[in-house]
């Protein structure tokens, strides 16, 4: 599945030093693979949403202090394949 910003073959830069901010894209490690998710930060904590709004069959994943390792790093740049 492809995001509005990310296409097959693109290279992304991931920065572990950046604190996840509301609606950022982050590389997460879920079920044994790296997945890009959108991080939504609300009053009750953070939730990992599917990147593509149309993909509603990927359920939101709540992130608390006990599983904050799920977020591997924030995507800071997308390098498009020519």
């Amino acid at each position: 599945m492809v995001d509005a910003d990310m296409d097959e073959g693109d290279i992304i830069i991931v920065d572990r030093a950046v604190e996840p901010y509301n609606n950022c894209k982050a590389v997460c490690f879920i079920d044994g693979e790296y997945t890009v998710k959108r991080v939504v930060i609300g009053e009750n904590g953070a939730v990992l949403m599917p990147c593509n709004a149309h993909n509603s069959h990927y359920k939101p994943i709540p992130v608390g202090p006990e599983n904050d390792f799920l977020i591997w790093g924030v995507v800071t740049y997308i390098i498009k394949k020519a």
């Binding site: 599945m1 990310m6 290279i11 992304i12 590389v27 693979e33 890009v36 998710k37 990147c51 593509n52």
Partner: peptide
């Protein structure tokens, strides 16, 4: 060798 990610 850069690791791959999927967008979901």
């Amino acid at each position: 060798d850069i690791p791959g990610v999927v967008v979901k």
